[in-house]
Amino acid sequence: MKKILIVLALALSFSCQQESKVGFVDNGELINGYQMKIDIEAKYEGINQSFTKRMDSLSQEFQKEVMQFQSKQQSMSQKELEEIYQMLGQKQQQLQQQYQVEQQELEKAFQTEIDTVISQVKDFVKQYGKDNKYKYILGSNEAGSVIYGEESSNITKVILEALNTKYESKK
């Protein structure tokens, strides 16, 4: 009878240990190491460089226009000067507005894609936890949600590899 109780206690103890499987991930490392995020950042770096070149070109064209005006202003009447000043002021304002609007659109599109990445990572970690019978997978970050964890409970690299493998297979 004692042996049966000991075996049952061990079995119960083992089953309780199985149910309380806990791991943690370093949120920053997971997100920053995700190839999809890296690809999105590279894509938007290229877009931003093109945008900057285009805006610089427009700005240079405007500066040339201003310089041409300045070289001719001596021979112009007061009325012509006022009209051109007004036209140049409006053009400068339009260029600034165009720059701001396009920059905001780029930032919004980038943030939308990054939000998608974060959502996909969260969903993947949830599914990984279910598939691998974790009771909890905690997220570690700068704010200290996991201040200490045994390295054996850190599953960041395992999840990151699985996440990147899944992403690469969809490309």
Rank of each mutant, 00 (worst) to 15 (best):
Q90V: 08
L5H: 07
K64C: 05
S50N: 12
N154L: 08
V121T: 13
Y34P: 04
Q98Y: 03
A11H: 04
F124R: 05
E151C: 00
S57V: 02
Q111C: 01
T165Y: 00
D56E: 13
Q74W: 03
L8G: 04
D123E: 14
S153H: 09
I137C: 13
F110Y: 15
E41I: 04
K72Q: 14
Q97S: 12
I155S: 03
N141T: 08
Q90L: 11
L10R: 07
Q90E: 14
L12E: 08
S140H: 04
K157E: 09
E82T: 08
K2D: 15
S15C: 07
N132A: 01
G89T: 09
L163R: 08
M1P: 06
I84D: 05
I155C: 06
K171W: 00
Q70W: 02
L81D: 10
G23V: 11
F51Y: 15
E65N: 12
S169P: 05
G149D: 07
S169N: 10
S119M: 09
V66K: 14
Q97W: 05
E142N: 14
A9G: 07
L12F: 13
Q120K: 11
G149P: 08
S169D: 12
K37R: 06
L106V: 07
V125E: 06
V25D: 13
E142F: 05
D131P: 00
I84P: 02
E83Q: 14
K133Q: 10
D123V: 06
K2A: 14
E29T: 12
G23W: 05
V125Q: 10
V125C: 06
